[in-house]
Nucleic acid binder design. Sequence first.
DNA 1: ATGGATACGATACATCTCGTATCGCACAAG
DNA 2: CTTGTGCGATACGAGATGTATCGTATCCAT
Lengths: 202, 202
Amino acid sequence: MEPVRKQTAAQTSSGGRPRSPRIHQAILKAAVDLVLESGSRAISMDDIAARADVGRMTIYRRWCNKAAIIMDAFVARVDPGTLFLPARSYTESIRLQMRSMAKAFRGKDGALIRALLAEAQFDPRLAVELRDRWTMPRRKMAISYFQRGIKDGLLRSDADPDAIIDILYAPIYYRLQMGTGPLSDAYVDEIFDHAMKGLRKV
Amino acid sequence: MEPVRKQTAAQTSSGGRPRSPRIHQAILKAAVDLVLESGSRAISMDDIAARADVGRMTIYRRWCNKAAIIMDAFVARVDPGTLFLPARSYTESIRLQMRSMAKAFRGKDGALIRALLAEAQFDPRLAVELRDRWTMPRRKMAISYFQRGIKDGLLRSDADPDAIIDILYAPIYYRLQMGTGPLSDAYVDEIFDHAMKGLRKV
DNA sequence: ATGGATACGATACATCTCGTATCGCACAAG
DNA sequence: CTTGTGCGATACGAGATGTATCGTATCCAT
């Protein structure tokens, strides 16, 4: 299986003209702008090349398809910093993290992740990339955070961190894709509160 | 905005040769078979026409694109019967319904709904169709079921039926698309139990 | 039965997109 | 200055899309 992102030949071997980082950024910016304007399906490699004022071959030298460009652009946007910031309490920190993700999904990141998720359903290589570069890093951080909460007696001891993640975060993805309602803070709070308290009447 | 499914001209006006229902079914079957074999992106209208042993124009006369065919085929597959079957208890009936959906998603329906969900991210008309013909009918049934549970004091009175749906069912869609693990009955039970009991230690 | 209207299969066609190849020039390292 | 690669431009073939058209088939109304 060939890689989605192509090797920088000039960096691996010795001589030759190096690839321009300026062009790299121009392509990523052009791709993001066009996706937000017209949607990822409506645009072609030609469109991106024209907007970036770059030859089409220059793009194909670096990425194998549209989705790979969007993936790189998306990952470059996300803050690689801490996932859970300190708050009033352990659980409040979770709520704030959920709100922060919902806020990102309401903006440009939402349009990009929607395109990537959809495209990943058709392209197994992209699906792997999305898992490795977006989904799993965040799940790993969340798992360790939830494990601490279980250990400290703040979350139920019989809860599986993976299930906790899915219950809390899957609704955000669901609403992003289905559009059954706004991805508001009020919605996030509703999901968070009900998931914490439980749905069954005690 | 033009319709995704095209009007049966022979049925609206008077005379003329009627469209063959046999051909209709042949096209739907060919589309489903090919999607399951190769994936919806890999196949073309030509492929479907060839498999159904039908002229390409005959397909375009009825549907405007691939996704519209898959949509009709998918909706024709789903049982329009009752959503929640009686079980040992009110809440057990919810669990069984979740399991039944997960089972469907493990099979052919899973591949079809994945393709439709992905395609709907690019085609607003298809997104509306998917909402109207799949998502909303089931949400409406679930809402009325959950409202009864709230009224009967089996579910928390402060819970919003929409939020309940998302907490219980979004994880199933999430795992279907992300592939973070198997869509097993054990997983469904885990989501169901934790969502019912709540995540916070009491 | 007969004529009108439409479905159907087949074919052709223009258009678009993709991915590759190639040419000439630009640019950095040795 | 030579070598090796990046870069823009152009051409090319393959494949898909959506439309158009032709001759035949089939149903309905008269």
